[in-house]
Nucleic acid binder design. Sequence first.
DNA 1: TGATTTTTTGCAAACGTTTGCAGTGAATCC
DNA 2: GGATTCACTGCAAACGTTTGCAAAAAATCA
Lengths: 341, 341
Amino acid sequence: MNSKNPVTIKDIAKKFKCSPSTVSRALNNHPLINEDTRRNIQEYAQKVNYQRNSVSLSLRNKKSATLGVIVPTLNHFHETAMIEGLQSVLQIHGYMLAICVTNESYLLEKQYIDKLLANRVEGVFLSVSQETYDSGHYEHLDDMSQRNIPLIFIDREYDGVPNSSITVDDYLGAFAATEHLIQRGCRRIAHLKGPNGLAVSEQRFRGYKECLAKHSLDFDEELIATTNFKAESAIVPMRRLMSLPKPPDGVFGVNDYVSIAAMQVILDLGFSIPKQVAVIGFDNSPFSAYVNPSLSSVNRSSRILGEEAARLFLNNMEGQTQQKEHIILPPELIIRDSTLT
Amino acid sequence: MNSKNPVTIKDIAKKFKCSPSTVSRALNNHPLINEDTRRNIQEYAQKVNYQRNSVSLSLRNKKSATLGVIVPTLNHFHETAMIEGLQSVLQIHGYMLAICVTNESYLLEKQYIDKLLANRVEGVFLSVSQETYDSGHYEHLDDMSQRNIPLIFIDREYDGVPNSSITVDDYLGAFAATEHLIQRGCRRIAHLKGPNGLAVSEQRFRGYKECLAKHSLDFDEELIATTNFKAESAIVPMRRLMSLPKPPDGVFGVNDYVSIAAMQVILDLGFSIPKQVAVIGFDNSPFSAYVNPSLSSVNRSSRILGEEAARLFLNNMEGQTQQKEHIILPPELIIRDSTLT
DNA sequence: TGATTTTTTGCAAACGTTTGCAGTGAATCC
DNA sequence: GGATTCACTGCAAACGTTTGCAAAAAATCA
């Protein structure tokens, strides 16, 4: 019983003095099999706790029932909620998820893709790393398309390549956030943007800028500061902003982390939120409702994003449709105390 | 070039009019191979972008180079940081990580374990679900030990089973947090505990209680409230606590989410933090330094926990030592404004 | 009973590797 | 020049399944 090796179909065959084929058919409820043998074999298999070896199955069927998920980090609520969404749907369809964290490195991203391909995954959800985006290289993705393995861009898109993608409309979200600040009376709105070059950063930046333009507000370069998405990285820039001759009366942060760091700086310097400075973030992280003052934010429905991405993949599989889809989910403004009028 | 099927060792063999064995040896730098053939084959393999099929390798070697990670959720910083830690170490050693989210369900946990076993993973890191813990069932883990597949309890332990485990000393952390509150003058300390029965909850609860005892403070049942780790679940209980005839002057929350929710309630009701009520959380989540007031917390070095867990597994593999280890990492008190004197 | 159909089973190949063993030439030795 | 060594290479089996095809066994028919 405590044999190190799991019981195989051959073991069962030996026991019943029949061929492995028969066992296989019995276990798979193949129609061409005697009812009694089927029952006997199934019962015995149950008893000895037989478990089909997925590896050999994968080899034979050239299908691994495994999908790759490549993300830059797992730091943010958005990413993990996305993965939960993916898993919740794909689990039902029998897929396993191999998670890879690139830490924004191109090299790791490439290595992971190779590895996933070597493992014969049936599809990959990719949220491109910043380095990849910066470098503009995408040769490492060629193998996937050559082998007809669905590659779905999730969350972060990569304009150069024709693949299905699902993202949240960052531009729209940023536009809405900025417009909200304007409508509540802000006239000098600072933006704590994300790393340069990254699509999310630039889309949101564009949303911010174009909203200013729409409302005939001047775009002021000195109201822009760059962060790396982490709270710490917002502190120094925010101090600078607040010590300008004309400090901002509104701040749009590229995500909630930089926004709460910004709020802290603002309050520390003796300004009031939202009275003197209104602040709005992005992501609607679980903590945003509980900071003080509670933080307005742009909700991205991260979990739904994951679920939809999973469906995108499943449709692609079922229908064998090579049609590429580009889904852009609408963001949603969540208004809280930090931008109250 | 855009053949759907990846190039195999046989294809190369055909090209060179040699046997697959030779190709295999050439690619694996086997000593018994002609230098020229080796070079030629390797160059060609490179050119046609040959990638070894890990599936067949797994089948032959009975080794999948894949590890399973089972967690209840991905909601908390602690869990994701842990996974990042795992991945950062294991990636170097060529392992893939299959992530499974049980959503605290026993059934899913069981299913995932079966699935991982079917996939012939070489090891599993398990953070038991609440249901599993509640039910006391652990038969679903028997297969693993019978097959000698390392099962490592990570973060959440499961007392009944003799396996390696790595956790943070929840008891100690809770004790330290409570003691800190006492030392800064709190005398009526409430505890927002986690779900009943779950080890983490109970350990922290015990740390809290025994610390009170040590300092000869009465344990008052009415100062205890149960949450489900989520912020929302702390709100109603906290309102109750603050409307007691004698409201608490200190709150120890089972994690940072419930603690920030608690802070919000406290402030909303017009009490001041930390003057009237001090609050301390658990996890040192990235946002805890940036809420207002900043939240004292117990740091769990989550990433290091993951890294150490990975090393635990690697040692187990290398040395073939069946020795079970139980690592308990010390937590660290991070003091911020919410408990200042 | 013998022929025919039906039901059930087994054979063998395949998926892509690796590896012990045997075999092939060629080089070396005496 | 024949025996021995040496440097390579190929054969075949193995990992655990599935499945088309053929064969066997059982059932039906005439």
